[in-house]
């Protein structure tokens, strides 16, 4: 019998996400998937499984969860306060969630999107080849209290592992490349874009993030009559009043508002994770620098399994000490036998 994870209480932005649904761009359906794909890769590395498995994405805050069998879980992305039966569960780490135990995940203390990955992955019927909810397309739905998620068979492995995540939870400098509409903007507008300190607006979702600044808007002549053209995640779209939006995983596939530049895929999690009010700055890099940055990020992702180390737990904080056990023949580690 397969395991299930029941949602006892759900924050307002819980969805099932994986790497998305490529192949339907020509039919107007964007790839979607997790807004912080690195966090999925981190969760997969902690559990020793492929990053193609689906996890629960939590926007802003988490919820309360209970499993009907022992599950291995990993908590990644925006740091949230997590407890298993009242004992603190360290973020950016893997844990055993014993059958019947309550996992509660509170509001984000750094970043915007947290991820709950499960050994074996979240199942459910794929739609057009993926399990990701794509809410703007009407695929899937927000998770709510009472939902029961089927969990895939877990190949097993260690829990109680942690790592140091790439810092991407407080805004900062974002690298962008010129796109095919960048030269619609005058050179001094591009200079001003790079000199401006933007703040992430509270208005943000899986489609995109609105940017605020104190200066005037950014403008092109004839901006309202540009032919609708292909859009990619990371595009910085400038709407009619001159406000830039950075488009994320669930963006539209074409659009008529001009794009002033495109964020590198490896820097996009930093935009998605920036909390409301965080500073964001943009810097143009060459295509070669952009490809080099993507290569470095891919290498860092591939090295994640080697970056893991055992959690050093404080036994005094482990109210459920006796419930800790190893599953599927993992090798005993010091902190598990304290």
């Amino acid at each position: 019998m397969s395991a299930h994870l029941t949602i006892l209480r759900a924050g307002p932005g819980l969805t099932v996400q994986d790497l998305g649904r490529p192949g339907y761009l020509d039919m107007g359906l964007s790839r979607g998937g997790a807004v912080d794909r690195l966090a999925l890769a981190e969760g997969a590395a902690l559990l020793g499984q492929p990053d193609s498995l689906a996890a629960v994405e939590m926007a802003g805050t988490g919820g309360e969860f209970q499993a009907d069998q022992d599950l291995r879980i990993a908590l990644t992305g925006a740091r949230m306060r997590a407890q298993i039966n009242g004992a603190t569960a360290v973020w950016n780490a893997s844990h055993l969630l014993p059958a019947g135990a309550r996992l509660s995940i509170g509001p984000a203390v750094a970043g915007s999107y947290g991820y709950l990955s499960v050994g074996g992955g979240v199942l459910g019927d794929p739609v057009l080849g993926a399990r990701s909810a794509h809410l703007t397309a009407g695929i899937g739905a927000l998770l709510t209290a009472g939902d029961r998620l089927a969990i895939g068979p877990d190949a097993g492995g260690a829990t109680g592992m942690t790592f140091d995540p790439e810092d991407r939870f407080s805004g900062g400098e974002i690298r962008i490349v010129a796109s095919f509409q960048t030269d619609l903007f005058a050179p001094d507008e591009l200079e001003r874009l790079q000199a401006t300190v933007f703040r992430r607006d509270a208005r943000a979702n899986r489609m995109g993030v609105r940017l605020e600044s104190d200066g005037p808007g950014f403008h092109v002549s004839g901006g309202r009559s540009v032919l609708s053209e292909t859009i990619v995640p990371g595009d910085i779209q400038v709407t009619g009043d001159g406000t830039p939006f950075v488009l994320l995983a669930e963006c539209q596939t074409t659009g008529g508002y001009p794009r002033i530049g495109t964020v590198l895929p490896c820097d996009l999690p930093k935009v998605a994770q920036a909390p409301a009010g965080a500073d964001l700055r943009f810097r143009f890099v060459s295509l070669d620098e952009g490809v080099a940055a993507e290569r470095a990020a891919a290498q860092a992702r591939a090295a994640l399994p080697r970056a893991l180390r055992p959690l050093i737990r404080d036994p005094r904080s482990m109210s459920d000490l006796l419930s800790y056990q190893l599953i599927s023949g993992a090798i005993a580690r010091e902190e598990d036998v304290l």
């Binding site: 020509d26 107007g28 609708s228 009619g240 074409t254």
Partner: peptide
Amino acid sequence: TIGFAPGQPYLGELPPAWDIPRQKEL
């Protein structure tokens, strides 16, 4: 073309009178 949202068509071309701009406010 199909674009912006799933299955959504851009259709044309209308007579020249319909060469009107998008609204400034959404």
